[in-house]
Design a protein around this nucleic acid. Sequence first.
DNA 1: CAAATAAAAGACAATTTTATCTTAAATGTT
DNA 2: AACATTTAAGATAAAATTGTCTTTTATTTG
Lengths: 145, 145
Amino acid sequence: MMFSKACEYGIRAAVYVTLQSLEGRRVGVNEISEEIDSPIAFTAKILQQLTRNNIIHSVKGPNGGFEIDPEDMNSAKLSMIVKAIDGDKIYTGCGLGLKECNAQKPCPLHDKFLDIRNNLSTMLTSTSLYELATGLEVGLTYLKR
Amino acid sequence: MMFSKACEYGIRAAVYVTLQSLEGRRVGVNEISEEIDSPIAFTAKILQQLTRNNIIHSVKGPNGGFEIDPEDMNSAKLSMIVKAIDGDKIYTGCGLGLKECNAQKPCPLHDKFLDIRNNLSTMLTSTSLYELATGLEVGLTYLKR
DNA sequence: CAAATAAAAGACAATTTTATCTTAAATGTT
DNA sequence: AACATTTAAGATAAAATTGTCTTTTATTTG
Ligand code: FES
Ligand code: FES
């Protein structure tokens, strides 16, 4: 709706990886997709994207899996995940679908849309994986239902 | 990105119909899709939806076309179009894709997402077709580029 | 080194969204 | 009444997104 399905899974997966890395555990695709209730093979693809974009880190072989360096948890923002998976149309696209959002030749919704989009953008660039994982840790939030 | 393509076309079409109805002109699908730069047959389908939902009015036959009663221009809000075409997942869906947004068992993004969503929702329910058409009328905004 | 494990990569399949085309129904004009 | 015009409806088609399956590559362990 706001994000693609791939992006939703990507965020949930990244948050779960963060939570587990906080405990020093590396996690595999099977566990991840189980815990965030997502299609496993599709989730694997998405984790690959996150890895290629250096948002999380992967290790092959026995006892391998995905992890995120605790040092990076705070600097890893939602905006990075969204950009890696959905691209930046959410930041640069016109709300009414004109080629590009352009203040010189704005669509009728431009001003109002820009407002919303800036809110969203600010939220995404200021929210870290660490922040999201901590709510989970204390049982206040959920990644599946 | 935020709205489906169908919804984008729907809003642009509705605004164009409003603009023309302001001048007392009824407009056909061909002219509409020309003026908003959208695929014609697809646009026709979308206009059907808007008509079925009583957002605009259609007249068949020679000199027929689409129009909106000037009395309705102010009460016709963007939220109606979005709801008619994209449904209400934009209002009730969870940002991270959990079955439904639910404050009792919130996803990690719930609070922040709700904020954005409320902004968006308020914007959509308070913006009328009339308001959007007037900007166009005076040449400040555009429906195609 | 061989075997087992786990991610990476690539081909393929299903579903949804976007888009087109054809026929039918309604309405005004001659 | 016949005809032209224009929306409505329904059947298809194309493209994009979502999802699966198989093979390859890297790494650990015995
Ligand atoms: S031009 Fe449409 S949102 Fe800026
Ligand atoms: S539960 Fe996810 S947005 Fe409310």
